[in-house]
Amino acid sequence: MDAAIDPIVGRYLHLTLQGRAHRVYFEEAGQGIPLVCLHTAGADGRQFRHLMNDPEITAHFRLLAFDLPWHGKSSPPEGWQEEEYRLTTESYIETVRAFCGALALERPVVMGCSIGGRIVLQLAIDHAGEFRALIGLEAADFQTPWYDTAWLHRPDVHGGEVCAALVSGLMAPQSPPADRWETLWHYMQSGPGVFKGDLYFYRVDADLRDEVAKIDTSACPLYLLTGEYDFSCQPEDTLRTAERIAGAEVVVMKELGHFPMSEHPAKFRQYILPVLEKIRAGE
């Protein structure tokens, strides 16, 4: 057989979260140190497919990316039709830890982008001992909102179209069009109100400005990488955050924006490979 098949396998994991049964979809590739990848708000684990197809990474790391409940191929829990979806710090932390626990991942690395980057900071504050290293992409303890999320979920505006149109500007103009538009397609496919529900966590429930100084990087190394074209989590937001965390390593990535792993995979690997190498060296 000479068919071109990605070395990525997708499966469903049954978890009880917030006391309710969930069927969580995840993909994985590679062998070695577990590396759990957390997607951005309103998207899903496909954002990490390029890393999962990178032999230099999968030779040493077992990458796993789950779709948060309500996202991608992870359905909402039974009874969802009567609810307004809202991600909270508590539910997000529970989901990450339950996923790692269910798969018995031994001190995994967690790398999250945007809301995933914010929750990485929360993991560093409260659960550093459980992780080998933490990587925040487009991560900060707080950032100034730049639009009204009420526009994301209403019957007279197409949610997928407006979500994609809003986040389109967060990518760098140098990023290849095919990768930019694939990134936006994920936003166009998101369920109604899901992006808005994720941003509840981001904007209302996770202001960490008074918390990040507690992070002990000797217990768990912390790496923060932010694209220069990200005007949502601006480089200065990440730099300000890093200044409050002794030992945090911070990199501002040139010609990248808010979705580095999916908007320009070739450029992003130049930044992430040295970080992964340091983590390996720390073994």
């Binding site: 505006v157 407006v162 994609a164 809003l166 389109s168 500007g169 760098a172 103009p173 005007f231």
Partner: peptide, 27 residues
């Protein structure tokens, strides 16, 4: 300086009025 909302965030652009038609056709 690369996006309309980057400009509004930095105070170099404003959006005013009934934004419904704008947001419904934002792209």
């Amino acid at each position: 300086w690369h996006d309309l909302f980057a400009l509004t965030k930095r105070g170099e652009a404003v959006l005013e009025g009934d934004l419904g038609p704008l947001m419904a056709n934002l792209r």
